[in-house]
C-alpha cells in the first residue's frame, strides 16, 4: 500500500489518478499512523513552503515521515513535496524543511520568464531504478518558481536547463524527489511513477 499524504496543499487528485491508472494500491491520508504503516509514501503538493511545513507539523506528520524514511521504505516528494525534503527554503522568508536531503531552496533569479512553465528535457546524471525506461532528452512538464540547491551534487539524478542547471530528480538511498509533474508528463511521467510503484512492491532499498 502506498500512502499519499494529504496535508491541505493543493489537489492530490491528479497524482492519485495517475497512480491508480498504473494499478497501484493506494490510500490518500492525513493520518500519521496510516503513513507509518504504508509500504511506500508520496508527498505531493503545491503552494507555499512555510504553510506546508506548518500543516505537516500540526498533523503530527513530520515524525511519521521520519519513521518511514528510517524504516527504509521508498519515499517520493513531488513538486513542493520535493522541495520540502531539503534543509531550508527562502520562499516568503526563511523556513526549515524536512532535511532528509541537505540543501537549500531558492527563488529563480534573473531576467527571464518565471515561473519555469512548460515541457523541458531531462539530462540524466546518475543511474537509478527510478529512471528505468527514461532517456536522456525525454520531455516532462514543469511549473515552478523555486529551485533546489543540494549540498551534495551526488543526489542529482536528472536535471534540465532553464537559464542554468535546474535539478529535476533527486535521490538519496530510498528518498526521491521530482521537481516537475510526473502526473502531467504523459508517458515519461507515468514511467517514473511506475518505477516508484515497482520499488514499493519489491520493498527495494534502491
Amino acid at each position: 500500500m502506498i500512502a499519499i499524504i494529504d496535508y491541505g496543499m493543493g489537489n492530490l487528485r491528479s497524482v492519485e489518478k495517475a497512480l491508480e491508472s498504473l494499478g497501484a494500491d493506494l490510500v490518500v491520508t492525513s493520518d500519521p499512523d496510516v503513513v507509518r504503516q504504508a509500504a511506500g509514501v508520496i508527498l505531493p503538493g503545491v503552494g507555499a513552503f512555510g504553510d506546508a511545513m506548518e500543516n505537516l507539523r500540526q498533523q503530527g506528520m513530520i515524525s511519521a515521515i521520519q519513521d518511514v524514511v528510517a524504516a527504509g521504505k521508498p519515499f517520493l516528494g513531488i513538486c513542493l513535496g520535493m522541495q520540502l525534503l531539503f534543509t531550508s527554503s527562502d520562499e516568503h522568508g526563511f523556513n526549515e524543511g524536512l532535511n532528509l536531503i541537505e540543501g537549500h531552496v531558492r527563488r529563480f533569479q534573473g531576467d527571464f520568464k518565471i515561473p519555469h512553465i512548460g515541457w523541458n528535457d531531462l539530462t540524466l546524471t546518475r543511474e537509478s531504478a527510478l529512471l528505468d525506461g527514461v532517456q536522456n532528452g525525454d520531455y516532462v512538464y514543469w511549473v515552478h518558481s523555486l529551485v533546489v540547491e543540494p549540498v551534495d551534487r551526488d543526489v542529482l539524478l536528472a536535471t534540465t536547463d532553464y537559464y542554468g542547471e535546474v535539478p529535476g530528480i533527486v535521490g538519496r538511498d530510498h528518498v526521491f524527489g521530482i521537481q516537475f509533474h510526473p502526473e502531467k508528463s504523459s508517458r515519461v511521467g507515468l514511467t517514473l511513477l511506475r518505477n516508484f510503484v515497482g520499488m514499493v512492491r519489491e520493498g527495494v532499498r534502491a
Binding site: N11, S14, K17, E20, H181, E183, K184, L190
Partner: peptide, 28 residues
C-alpha cells in the same frame, strides 16, 4: 478528463467568482 488524461489542461468559460475557480481546480 483529470482521471484519464495525463497532460495539463485548462478549463475556461463561465467563471465569475473565486468559488468557480476553486470548484474547477478541485475537479482536477
Amino acid at each position: 478528463t483529470a482521471d484519464q488524461v495525463f497532460i495539463p489542461f485548462t478549463v475556461g468559460g463561465g467563471i465569475k467568482e473565486v468559488e468557480d475557480i476553486r470548484e474547477l481546480l478541485l475537479a482536477g
